[in-house]
Amino acid sequence: MSWLTLVQALALTMAGAMIILALAFGVIDRGLRARLTGTGARSERSLTMLAALPLLGAAVFVAGCLFPALAALWVPSMDHCLAHGQGGHLHLCPTHLPAHSSSWVGWLVLGLAGIVPVFYLTDLFRRLIATERLKSQLERASQREGVVRLIEASAVICFVVGVFRPVLFVSRALWEGLNESERGVLVAHELAHIARRDSLREVFARLLLAFHLPTSRARLLEDLSLTREQACDDQAAHVCGDRLAVAQLIVRIKRMALPSPSLSATLGAASISGASLDARIEHLLDPQPDAQPDLRLWWAIGLLLIAIFAAAHFLHHDVEHLLAALY
């Protein structure tokens, strides 16, 4: 039972740290967002790191709590359990396992803390299945034309779908409305998504975002989506050698897709602002080839993780006291 108690105590510590970090991130993410958007693929790495922050920070905190016990394996004088006495409160230590059995209150707290992430991950799994089902439906109902699969639809749409073996679909209405060079730009952009494995990147990011507040998660997803589109715009521009041609095509397709009055009424509820369209065009007009790899942010994250580790080292005794209240 002692090992189970230790695992439960560590899981509670991790959950508590994740909740605190997610709340803290929820407070500062608006400010961070303003600093990070629009710097291309490098920013995507920074955003992914931010997505991982609650999980990573909590893991570092748990490591910090375990550090005295693990360090005592090499330096016995660091063993804090002996100093505090083994018969007393619970110790986060694999050497001196807790004498208590696991607590039902602890399992209840863990269950409550896990409700939102489990619900979110279940929904993600359902989305993955729906995505693969959509791909297979469209593959059956489309015609291959080179790397493109044409779907018989009057709507102006073009997208890549599929997590492990993504496929590019274009509606015939769009395909036949473009000239050869425009088709080249369109295909270059979408093939960039496939080459970069953006679908897998998105799944990975969404997994990391399970431990964020819903508001922070939505903002980070939006920013990640924009940086991926900008990276693919850059690659399409590299292939065709003309950034303005990519910008023109985006606006032209958006114009082709302007809904009719009747469709406009149907789409009313689904529409969102055109902010990402502006951001993509501005990025193409004013590229940032010397985009800095957000060094300040990486330094800040590194220092934060060190601070979390140090805080855990100093706070582990208080954490043990807090956990002991459950046993």
Partner: peptide, 17 residues
Amino acid sequence: GESDVMLHAFVEITERA
């Protein structure tokens, strides 16, 4: 926007300009 699948569209499908 009723479909909740994950895809990468050339222009955002539900974003109206």
